[in-house]
């Protein structure tokens, strides 16, 4: 298990390959990459030119590690890699990487989605979008709470 919170970009190919490097027991690697979208803001017609991601150093790493530990308790996983960026990002930039290695695809798909759903509601990151009208904090979405809630036992 490895968690990184960093300003720098990451290489999806390198991270994906590392999940199975030197192992013959990995039969499935599922990955998710989150990107900055140039959304139109509802009703305003202005596009996002950039965003700044703030986080809570210390708690961020702890919360991501706790989410990965929870995933490892629920599924049989051979490797988990989580990278989340912070700082200033522009549309098209990568924000987050979740990669999960397991023997079979079922565990890999489920754990990858679980980590993202929990990350969305439990990891202390906040997005502020730059728009022509100035900075605007992104509101949390109820849909993210529902997505996380479906994993509760």
């Amino acid at each position: 298990m490895s968690v990184s919170v960093q300003e720098a970009d990451f290489d999806v190919g390198v991270e994906t390959q590392a999940l199975s490097a030197g192992r013959l027991d990995v039969g499935a690697v599922a990955t998710f990459v989150g990107l900055v979208r140039a959304d139109k803001l509802s009703g305003e017609g202005s596009e996002v030119s950039a965003m700044t991601l703030e986080h809570y150093p210390g708690m961020t790493e702890k919360s991501l590690e706790a989410i990965v530990t929870e995933a490892q308790a629920r599924w049989r996983l051979q490797g988990v890699r989580v990278i989340h960026r912070f700082g200033r990002l522009v549309p098209g930039d990568r924000i987050v990487f979740v990669g999960v290695a397991s023997a079979h695809r079922g565990d890999a798909f489920a754990a990858c989605e679980f980590v993202m759903d929990y990350l969305k509601t439990r990891a202390p990151f906040w997005k502020k979008e730059d728009t022509p009208e100035g900075g605007r904090w992104v509101d949390a979405r109820d849909a993210d709470d529902s997505a996380a809630a479906r994993w509760e036992k």
């Binding site: 809570y56 989340h84 990891a123 202390p124 990151f125 906040w126 992104v138 949390a140």
Partner: peptide, 10 residues
Amino acid sequence: IAFFPPVTGG
């Protein structure tokens, strides 16, 4: 102790 709005990462 920390206070903050609901999180919006990912």
